[in-house]
Amino acid sequence: VSVELPAPSSWKKLFYPNKVGSVKKTEVVFVAPTGEEISNRKQLEQYLKSHPGNPAIAEFDWTTSG
């Protein structure tokens, strides 16, 4: 189950709350306009370098507050 949070234009930000008793931590995933899922800052940096014209990296908020 995921919750969609505010994201930069043409992107989606999905929040996957951890299940009770789960060892997996809460996860935030950005979905690029191409449909590619980005789950960490390093991936995001690589994606933005190879896909010019996207929002600046500073516009991506990895917190769950939206």
Rank of each mutant, 00 (worst) to 15 (best):
V1I: 13
V1Q: 12
S2V: 15
S2E: 08
V3Y: 11
V3S: 07
V3E: 08
E4R: 07
E4M: 10
E4Y: 08
E4T: 08
L5F: 09
L5N: 05
L5A: 07
P6M: 07
P6A: 09
P6V: 07
P6Q: 09
P6E: 10
A7N: 04
A7K: 04
A7E: 03
P8A: 04
P8N: 05
P8Y: 04
P8W: 04
S9P: 15
S9F: 12
S9L: 14
S9I: 11
S10G: 15
S10V: 06
S10F: 12
W11R: 00
W11A: 01
W11Q: 01
W11H: 02
K12I: 09
K12A: 08
K12Q: 08
K13W: 03
K13H: 02
K13G: 02
L14Q: 05
L14G: 02
L14Y: 12
L14V: 08
L14N: 04
F15H: 08
F15Q: 06
F15T: 07
Y16I: 10
Y16Q: 06
Y16A: 06
Y16E: 03
Y16F: 12
Y16T: 07
Y16D: 01
P17D: 08
P17S: 11
P17K: 10
P17M: 12
N18E: 10
N18M: 10
N18W: 11
K19T: 11
K19S: 11
K19G: 14
K19Q: 14
K19H: 13
V20G: 14
V20C: 12
V20H: 12
V20K: 09
G21H: 09
G21L: 08
G21M: 07
G21A: 08
S22A: 10
S22K: 06
S22E: 13
S22F: 08
S22H: 09
V23A: 14
V23M: 12
V23H: 15
V23F: 12
K24R: 09
K24T: 15
K25D: 15
K25I: 09
K25C: 13
T26Q: 13
T26C: 15
T26L: 10
E27G: 15
E27H: 14
E27F: 15
E27P: 10
E27N: 12
E27C: 15
E27A: 14
V28S: 02
V28Y: 03
V28K: 01
V29K: 07
V29I: 12
F30A: 00
F30P: 00
V31N: 02
V31M: 08
A32G: 01
A32S: 12
A32T: 07
A32F: 01
A32Q: 00
P33F: 03
P33M: 02
P33E: 02
P33G: 02
P33L: 02
T34D: 09
T34L: 02
T34A: 02
T34W: 02
G35S: 03
G35P: 00
G35A: 02
G35K: 02
G35M: 03
G35C: 04
G35E: 02
E36G: 02
E36W: 02
E36I: 05
E36H: 08
E36R: 03
E37S: 11
E37M: 14
E37A: 12
E37F: 15
I38C: 04
I38K: 00
S39P: 07
S39T: 15
S39L: 11
N40L: 04
N40Q: 06
N40K: 04
N40T: 12
N40Y: 05
R41I: 13
R41K: 13
R41Q: 11
R41G: 09
R41F: 12
K42T: 13
K42S: 14
K42E: 14
K42I: 13
Q43A: 10
L44I: 02
L44K: 00
L44V: 01
E45F: 09
E45A: 11
E45M: 10
E45W: 11
Q46K: 13
Q46C: 07
Q46F: 09
Q46R: 10
Q46P: 00
Q46V: 10
Y47C: 01
Y47L: 00
L48Q: 00
L48A: 00
L48I: 05
L48Y: 02
L48T: 01
L48H: 01
L48K: 01
K49M: 13
K49D: 14
K49S: 11
K49G: 09
S50I: 09
S50K: 10
S50C: 10
H51W: 04
H51G: 01
H51Y: 06
H51M: 03
H51L: 01
P52M: 05
P52Y: 04
P52C: 04
P52G: 05
P52K: 06
P52S: 05
P52F: 04
G53L: 05
G53K: 06
G53E: 06
N54W: 04
N54V: 04
N54K: 03
P55Y: 06
P55R: 02
P55M: 04
P55G: 05
P55F: 05
P55K: 02
P55H: 06
P55N: 03
P55W: 11
A56Y: 07
A56G: 14
A56Q: 10
I57W: 06
I57L: 13
I57C: 05
I57R: 04
I57P: 09
I57N: 04
I57K: 05
A58I: 10
A58E: 14
A58F: 11
E59N: 06
E59L: 08
F60C: 02
F60S: 01
D61E: 06
D61T: 07
D61Q: 07
W62L: 02
W62V: 02
W62H: 01
T63F: 06
T63W: 05
T63M: 07
T64D: 09
S65E: 12
S65G: 13
S65A: 12
G66Y: 09
G66I: 13
G66Q: 10
